[in-house]
Amino acid sequence: MESAKAGGVHMVDEIACPDCAETIKAEAKVCRFCGLRLSDQAATSGPAPSSVDKDSPRQAHVWKNVAAVIAIGFVVSVLIYLQVYEGDKSKSYVDSSLIEAGQSAVARQLSDPASAQYRNFSTAGDCLTGEINAKNRLGGYVGFQDFLYDPRTKAVYLDVGLPETGLPFDLWKEQMNEHTAFIDKRTNCSRRA
């Protein structure tokens, strides 16, 4: 610590912060390292635990973090509740005869109908939607893709999905048009209900 003599009286220019032990000016009201507020008595007489302000910025920061964690926990629990309990109510019952008719119609368009794997059945108006994965002519599974079965026309529509980047423009445009047509057909089914 540095010291200076002023009029024969020995004064301390710097003191150690009672919280972080860093050296600070004796006249300091707040520690520049940890943000601890010091009362006038602590700044002149050295560290005294009883003279430390209980509501230091560090403690306020901790309480803000605790409040933020509690708020985030509350929001997450509400979202989980809505997903688990409210989500089940919005799922519609899909008639098993509609599923069988849809699977039969989709199977007629496949090169290997026995390999078909179905999932995520739902209804769009009076139409059946879902996902199908089946083997191609080379014997490999192509991956799940959306399908739509219209019981009125007995037609099946397969979604090619969004086109990949890097395709030649003509191919990209063709795939985008097929995907858009699929979305339009699903929308039309939903409107009919």
Rank of each mutant, 00 (worst) to 15 (best):
E22T: 11
E22G: 11
E22H: 13
E22C: 06
E22Y: 09
T23E: 14
T23W: 09
T23S: 15
T23F: 07
T23L: 13
T23Y: 08
T23R: 14
I24D: 00
I24E: 01
I24N: 04
K25S: 01
K25V: 03
K25R: 07
A26R: 00
A26P: 00
E27F: 03
A28P: 00
A28S: 03
A28F: 02
K29C: 03
K29P: 04
K29Q: 14
K29E: 13
K29D: 08
C31I: 05
R32F: 11
R32K: 13
R32P: 11
R32D: 12
R32M: 09
R32T: 12
R32V: 12
F33E: 12
F33V: 14
F33Q: 13
F33R: 09
C34L: 13
C34A: 06
C34P: 05
G35T: 04
L36D: 08
L36C: 03
L38I: 00
L38V: 00
S39W: 03
S39N: 07
S39D: 03
D40F: 01
D40V: 02
Q41M: 05
A42C: 05
A43Y: 01
A43L: 01
A43C: 00
T44S: 15
T44N: 14
S45M: 12
S45Y: 14
S45H: 15
S45F: 15
S45I: 07
S45L: 14
G46C: 04
G46I: 01
P47W: 04
P47N: 07
P47E: 06
P47K: 06
P47R: 06
A48N: 12
A48R: 09
P49F: 11
P49Q: 14
S50M: 10
S50F: 10
S50A: 13
S50N: 12
S51N: 07
S51L: 06
S51F: 05
S51E: 12
V52G: 00
V52F: 01
D53M: 03
K54P: 12
K54E: 11
K54T: 04
D55L: 15
S56H: 08
S56C: 04
P57K: 11
P57I: 10
Q59G: 10
Q59Y: 14
A60E: 10
A60Y: 09
A60C: 06
H61D: 11
V62A: 09
V62C: 07
W63M: 12
W63I: 10
W63S: 09
W63L: 12
